[in-house]
Simulated scan of single mutants.
Amino acid sequence: MADYRKLQDQQLVHLLQNGSHEAFGEIYKRYWALLYRNARKMLQDDQDATDVVQEVFTLLWERYPVIEVEISLSSYLYSAVRNKIINIINRNKLKNGYAASLQQFLAEGSRVTENEVREREFAIEIEREIANLPDKMRRIFELSRKQHLTYKEIAEEVNVSEGTVKKQVYNALKILRFKLGSYFFLFLMFVFYPFR
């Protein structure tokens, strides 16, 4: 019997795609705590972080025959957690936005909320920081995050290798994470769901 602890992530993914409970168990043991800490840091709530990670692993098991891990298993799992957190933030934002808007409307007869002003200011700050990226990096980043092109499509568009595209997107995210500081996670939400 194979020692699943010694297998590399890619081998575990292959076994998982073939329905291996043992491979799933090893992935769970290997990544649960790491994903939980990441989610906990972003959500600042133990139960929400636990729920997010459990949901990601539930979906991983339910969709094992069709999962596509393009870069690495860790990247796939971290992206899945990030997307779940974005959904939570959006749901909370909608609830909070509605409550704030209603309260302000009742108090002042206006639908303009302080949150909308903050969102607008934050959107402007994000666009300013993206505009400050080096030209080639900015173009690649915008094709990736705003036009949602694949790395391959971007590589063909700007006539560079896929590796260069990946590196440029990684470097752009690194710069923006530094520039936007603690608001970086909110930045990701605005990139995928821009303020209109």
Rank of each mutant, 00 (worst) to 15 (best):
Y193L: 03
K95R: 14
S74E: 13
D46F: 11
L59N: 14
V13P: 11
L43T: 15
F105H: 05
F187T: 15
H14C: 02
F122K: 10
L180F: 05
Y98I: 14
S161Y: 09
Y170I: 11
N90K: 15
Y78D: 00
G25K: 07
D3Y: 03
H14F: 12
G109F: 01
E119Y: 03
N115V: 00
Y170H: 14
R82P: 00
R128D: 10
Y151G: 01
I67D: 05
Y64D: 01
F105G: 09
L106F: 05
P194Q: 08
S72R: 08
F185W: 01
L149R: 13
V158N: 09
R118T: 04
N87L: 14
A155K: 00
E127D: 15
P194R: 07
V81S: 07
L15W: 09
K136W: 00
F190V: 04
L186K: 10
K95T: 12
K29C: 10
V169A: 09
L149V: 08
V112M: 00
Q11R: 08
I130L: 10
Y170C: 08
A33K: 13
S79C: 07
I86V: 15
Q103Y: 07
P194F: 02
A131E: 13
F105I: 01
L188P: 00
E70Q: 15
E157D: 11
E62C: 09
A2W: 10
K93P: 00
H148R: 13
H14W: 09
Y36S: 03
D135F: 05
M137D: 12
F192T: 08
P194A: 04
